[in-house]
């Protein structure tokens, strides 16, 4: 890469940081317990809207995994999410009424919070419907992973988004609060992913899975990106560019090996397709606050009319991380 291009990327990074700084005014602190964050704590950042139903399990899942503090942005929930979150001693919440889209789908808000609070910490950025799976996650805590990453001088950890879906129509099995959503949506596509390299930012661009297969079979280039880098040893100079798909500086995007080897990676189980989905899709369609003029939700809405079944006979039923590693969706790398 030439000097000119790296200079341009540097400018771009500064621009995102400046933008995050500008957007800080949109955030109003509701409960700020960040004073309790100790050096070395693992932090989780997320933006959410009307997720009261999912929050109890979400918080519990990551708390058990070893996340020490949650820093959340509530985008004007009307279902009591905000009040619920304020009760928890390891949660700090900010509230905003401003547009999700204008904040580049929450990236600006989180970039700002990360700049403020995550410097020197391992920082995990996930949505409330994303559940991180990493090698040995059944026997080793997240701290074991981050300690190992530290010891190996690795600064960012990839976890691809794996869309999970139930067998039968999406709306058939209602989700109860506190329940593990993977109990319902426990099927996934094992091997229909397209991978391309993004030359500019150096990241991989992964598309595929059930969304691509069912909703985007005739316009695959519009299918949502599945590559994610949610776990980063944060520095206040870093910035997410687009969701958690890629970062600047671009060295952080090099989470894959180019010489034939495998680096360690995880998976984000994406429990989007629960019975709550149709409602959400309808709402998002009217709010128009999602990516690329909500093209994704438009495509869903068309298909959702007939309550689709994403399941097919080649769907794979989720068992554990070892299964995902054998299928080649994630890797232990040289962590043993």
């Amino acid at each position: 890469m030439g000097v000119w291009q790296s200079y341009r990327l540097r400018l771009q990074r500064k621009r995102w940081l400046l933008r995050a700084w500008r957007k800080r005014r949109e955030l109003r602190s509701v409960t700020n317990r960040t004073g309790a964050i100790k050096p070395g704590d693992i932090l989780l950042f997320s933006t959410l809207r009307n997720e009261q139903l999912r929050l109890p399990y979400f918080l519990q899942y990551y708390r058990d995994m070893g996340v020490n503090h949650f820093l959340l942005v509530d985008n004007d929930s009307t279902d009591g999410s905000l009040e619920y979150l304020a009760e928890h001693p390891d949660v700090s919440v900010w509230h905003t009424r401003h547009g999700y889209k204008r904040a580049r789908f929450g990236v600006d808000w989180l970039n700002w919070l990360q700049m403020q609070h995550a410097h020197g910490h391992w920082s995990l950025v996930v949505d409330p419907d994303e559940f991180l799976i990493y090698p040995f996650c059944d026997t080793r805590s997240l701290r074991a992973l981050t300690d190992w990453l530290d010891a190996s001088s690795i600064k960012s950890f990839a976890a691809m988004l794996l869309d999970m879906y139930p067998k039968g129509p999406i709306g058939a099995q209602p989700y109860r609060q506190g329940q593990d959503p993977i109990e319902i949506a426990n099927w996934f596509d094992a091997g229909n992913y397209s991978i391309k390299r993004n030359k500019r930012f150096g990241n991989l661009w992964i598309q595929g899975g059930p969304r691509s297969r069912v909703f985007f079979a005739d316009k695959p280039e519009k299918a949502p990106a599945l590559n994610k880098i949610p776990l980063v040893k944060w520095d206040k100079r870093y910035a997410y560019v687009s969701s958690t798909h890629m970062l600047l500086p671009r060295g952080l995007n090099l989470v894959y090996d180019e010489w034939g080897g495998e680096k360690a990676s995880g998976v984000l189980l994406h429990a989007k397709f629960l019975n709550t989905f149709s409602e959400k899709a309808q709402e998002e369609l009217t709010r128009k606050q999602h990516y690329a003029a909500s093209v994704e939700y438009k495509a869903y809405a068309e298909s959702l009319q007939d309550d689709p079944d994403l399941w097919c006979k080649w769907s794979e039923r989720y068992i554990n991380w070892r299964q995902l590693e054998i299928l080649g969706l994630m890797s232990k790398g040289n962590w043993a």
Binding site: A158, A159, M160, Y193, I195, R197, L204, I206, N227, V255, Y256, D257, E258, W259, G260, G261, E262, K263, A264, S265, G328, L329, M330, S331, K332, G333, N334, W335, A336
Partner: peptide
């Protein structure tokens, strides 16, 4: 176990393309 880990990190699984293994042309093994 540890020899396998080294092998996996340096050679990887032939014919696998995934989020953390995307070999340059000619390095696919």
């Amino acid at each position: 176990i540890f020899a396998k880990a080294v092998e996996r990190r340096t050679r990887g699984r032939a014919g696998l393309y995934m989020q953390s293994r995307f070999p340059n042309p000619g390095w696919e093994n």
